[in-house]
């Protein structure tokens, strides 16, 4: 029988990897990917808790289902925002400084 701490260690490793990607990477798509990796870690932790705690309920699994649906929604919006960022600034690299263009008077 695998102890719960193994699952928690794995989940925290995934969350740490996601945090590393969020802090170090400067490419917008990679930041979205690291957000998804963090979400996967959280989901593993939730399902493990729901199985290992004393009284078994379906709360953990149900919450994970809701999390997956909301992840789909926010990824869709994030991809469209990424494309629009690229359309406006010709880059998806956050390390490149962008200059807000002046609005002409005409």
């Amino acid at each position: 029988m695998i102890p719960l701490s193994w699952y928690l260690a794995l989940a925290f490793m995934l969350i740490g990897l996601g945090a590393y990607g969020m802090m170090v990477k400067r490419n917008l798509i990679r930041i979205i990917i690291s957000a998804e990796i963090m979400g996967n870690g959280v989901m593993i932790a939730l399902v493990a808790f729901s199985l290992y705690l004393d009284t078994f309920t379906f709360t953990g699994q149900g919450l994970v289902i809701l999390i997956i649906s909301v992840a789909a929604a926010h990824t869709a919006l994030a991809m469209v925002l990424m494309l629009m960022y690229h359309r406006r600034y010709q880059t998806i690299d956050l390390g490149v400084p962008v200059v807000q263009e002046e609005i002409s008077d005409e």
Binding site: I65, I68, S69, A72, T75, A76
Partner: peptide
């Protein structure tokens, strides 16, 4: 497609 996918899962 993603919207229909989530609806199909539910």
């Amino acid at each position: 497609f993603l919207v229909v996918d989530v609806m199909g899962a539910f």
